[in-house]
């Protein structure tokens, strides 16, 4: 026979404990709770939530707070692009222009075959550690080490290591710049998404030395500099630097480049 009283007491006690705790929680929220700023919430809702840090803040929450308090401009979110800026402008009631979309680009084409290893590295498998030993195991001390420090920090999994060097998938890149900070060789830079040419080399040695270390190196011959009708390319320290503000996408430099380190690219 069931003891109904026992079941009832158990039920009442558990229900009572639950009720008391529920009331306590309600009272606590009533008296001690702080409302989250609705503006912060609205701003946070408009952000993509990748927490990539491209805006320079600790994460989307931090950036939302800064935007709501007027400490930061609403167009710093690169992954969000124009959509996010439009949404933020609506929330804040101000006009803001979208940040130009950018993608990370690795200025190295020292694939296996073009370069040769000068030593065998058997230590910690990070670029930072490997780079400290004679500037890396590859023959070119300026190029990609290929241990994938950039790939491991990429929040979008847009970087892979192929043929001994890192490659960015420009369609997957969200432009957060995490890799540019992680690369100990500082050979990753942010290029505008509509760029049509890029220098695939970072070598600053003189032509013959650069060529000796890597078949695909920029030899600093200045042919591109002379070919460019807009003066958008300058050779600094034996390495061609493209000024994308001046570039008109004619592609003449890529045709002129004798080592084909300045090549046509398509990030779109």
């Amino acid at each position: 026979m069931f003891d109904f009283m026992a079941i009832l007491t158990a039920f009442l006690v558990v229900a009572g404990v639950g009720l008391v705790l529920g009331i306590l929680l309600a009272l606590f929220t009533q008296f001690f709770g702080i409302e989250d700023d609705p503006k912060v919430k609205a701003v946070r809702g408009a952000l993509p939530g990748a927490n990539c840090g491209a805006c320079g803040f600790k994460g989307c929450d931090d950036y939302a707070k800064a935007v709501a308090e007027g400490r930061a401009a609403p167009n710093l979110c690169i992954p969000g692009g124009a959509d996010t800026v439009a949404a933020l402008s609506e929330v804040l009631g101000v006009e803001a222009e979208a940040a130009a979309p950018k993608v990370a680009f690795i200025h190295c084409n020292g694939v296996c075959g073009a370069t040769s290893p000068k030593a065998e590295y058997d230590g910690m498998q990070t670029c930072k550690a490997s780079g400290m030993v004679f500037g890396g195991a590859g023959s070119c001390v300026y190029g990609c080490i290929g241990c994938g420090d950039c790939a491991s920090v990429c929040p979008a999994d847009a970087i892979c290591i192929r043929d001994g060097i890192a490659h960015v998938d420009p369609r997957a890149c969200i432009g957060c710049m995490a890799c540019t900070k992680a690369c100990p060789k500082h050979i990753i830079s942010m290029l505008p998404k509509d760029a049509v040419v890029a220098n695939f080399c970072s070598n600053k040695e003189k032509g013959a030395d650069a060529r000796k270390n890597c078949k695909n190196a920029c030899i600093g011959c200045k042919k591109c500099e002379k070919t460019c009708p807009n003066g958008a390319i300058t050779v600094i320290d034996n390495n061609a630097i493209v000024d994308y503000e001046k570039c008109t996408h004619c592609g003449a430099c890529a045709e002129a480049c004798p080592t084909k380190c300045l090549k046509a690219v398509n990030f779109q």
Binding site: L21, G22, L25, F28, T29, F32, G33, I34
Partner: peptide, 14 residues
């Protein structure tokens, strides 16, 4: 569970 919630509310405030 409820205590942790309350603790969180109080900490957030004070």
């Amino acid at each position: 569970a409820s205590l942790v919630q309350m603790l969180e509310i109080v900490l957030k405030k004070f």
